[in-house]
């Protein structure tokens, strides 16, 4: 069954699906529209911000994935899309927390030249 994908309604903007209000503080700071944007967002943050986000999203990941389970991946929009974009940003946060133990790769310049021209499909 396809879960409801409530669009932003007139007058009252629904930012994230019901039940995920605890993650509102990460919108829009951790919302990137592409893998490249999520990379850039994470790389510009401090380790404290990254770790805080990492802990909070990791704790909610099973709920998020379960909530989105029935959704058509290529048609995500509105609150569901934002929720999934937060979930995807965890992949970026994990690079800093689990691999580098610092925001960016050791000895790498910032900004840098490496660009993800085309990310995984569906692209968002």
């Amino acid at each position: 069954m396809v879960k409801s994908q409530a669009d932003d309604t007139l007058g009252e903007v629904i930012v994230l699906p019901e039940g995920f209000e605890d993650l509102l503080e990460f919108v829009p700071g951790w919302i990137g529209e592409t893998a490249q944007e999520r990379w850039d967002l994470r790389a510009a943050k401090s380790m404290d911000e990254i770790r805080y986000f990492y802990d909070r999203i990791l704790a909610r990941s099973n709920d998020i994935l379960a909530y989105l389970e029935g959704c058509e991946l290529s048609e995500l929009k509105g609150p569901c899309l934002r929720l999934f974009q937060l979930q995807l940003a965890l992949a970026q946060a994990a690079m800093s927390v689990e691999l580098h133990k610092q925001p960016r790769a050791i000895n790498s310049p910032w900004p840098h030249q490496v660009q993800i021209r085309l990310g995984p499909a569906p692209v968002y």
Partner: peptide, 14 residues
């Protein structure tokens, strides 16, 4: 699935 898409995001991030 969302989980597969997340796997790919992790793959690309790495």
């Amino acid at each position: 699935t969302p989980r597969e898409r997340l796997q790919q995001e992790l793959f690309v991030a790495r």
